[in-house]
């Protein structure tokens, strides 16, 4: 038994940009290190704006992207050492992804249950064909759906919220220890969003799955995560307990993000309009970059 579920040490990823002659190196992720403990499941939020490298980091944890330098170890598996398809299967048995766009997460031309049964067949230890139906139905029940609702359905027949639930159910069928969710609710309708967010809490509390929650939304991160990590231009600028960091941010960038959150308390809404004028005080005009 490993003490660490995920051990990331000094991971960097640089992309080349430009033509053959004027090639620039851009560091999407720069010397990032963090760990997730194996015994205590938690939700870690990675927060950043576009270009902060949060998605690249998530893709490296999923082994979709290979780091330029540094080391990622997931539950004893060194990601750089995955060569054979058996090793890849063992890896995917431990970590599963949830993507941003539920309408893109499944092939629009294919039926949804296909992915569920495929995942069940490839990863689950429980045997038997009759058991497959039961365990797929079980997984769907855990996310508030049932096999009846999903069987023979195509992705366009379900709403975004339902699709995201199916995506989570599919991930659960692989019985993973870690789920990496990249902006899982940013494209979900407002009335369905909070249910999905709550579902992540349930996964952590009831199933003991750790979740890496990649987002730009501080409010949902505050709502569900135990720990947060703020990224700016590839670097982690602040990390720690979610409540501590968001209630009293230390780094100027975190503060800036914190202040940019649009308040929705009734009292603030009434006050907001008058408070707005401070923002528009004349400053130096911005030049072309």
């Amino acid at each position: 038994m490993n003490d660490l579920l995920l051990d990331i040490s000094e991971v960097s990823k640089t992309f080349g940009r430009g033509g053959l002659l004027s090639r620039q190196k851009i560091a999407a992720v720069n010397q990032v290190s963090f760990q997730l403990a194996a015994r205590r499941p938690e939700i870690l939020a990675i927060i950043g704006e576009s270009g902060s490298g949060k998605t690249t980091l998530a893709r490296m944890i999923l082994n979709i992207e290979t780091p330029t330098s540094g080391k990622l170890v997931l539950d004893g598996i060194d990601l750089a050492a995955i060569r054979s398809s058996d090793a890849r299967m063992a890896f995917m048995h431990k970590v599963q992804p949830i993507f941003q766009n539920p309408f893109e997460s499944f092939n629009p031309l294919k039926r949804l249950d296909r992915y569920l049964f495929m995942t069940r067949r490839r990863f689950s230890r429980a045997a038997g064909e009759g058991a497959a139906e039961t365990s797929v139905d079980d997984a769907l029940q855990k996310v508030g759906l049932s096999l009846q609702e999903v069987r023979h359905r195509y992705p366009h027949e379900l709403s975004g919220g339902q699709l995201q639930r199916v995506a989570i159910a599919r991930a659960l069928l692989a019985e993973p220890k870690l789920i990496v969710a990249d902006e899982p609710v940013s494209m979900i309708d407002a009335s369905l969003r909070i249910s999905i967010v709550n579902l992540f809490k349930t996964l952590r509390d009831d199933l003991g799955i750790s979740i890496i929650y990649v987002t730009h939304d501080l409010a949902t991160a505050y709502y569900i995560s135990d720990r947060i990590m703020i990224m700016q231009k590839g670097c982690v600028v602040e990390s720690g307990d979610a409540r501590t960091v968001l209630r009293a941010p230390q780094h100027p960038y975190t503060r800036q993000l914190r202040e940019a959150v649009l308040l929705t308390e009734a009292a603030d809404v009434a006050a907001g309009v008058s408070g707005m004028n401070d923002l528009t005080s004349p400053g130096a005009p911005e030049r072309r970059a």
């Binding site: 909070i194 999905i196 709550n198 914190r258």
Partner: peptide, 12 residues
């Protein structure tokens, strides 16, 4: 969800 508010939210 609001920062600083820890009450659970109900889904619909």
């Amino acid at each position: 969800p609001r920062i600083g508010d820890d009450t659970p939210r109900e889904g619909l």
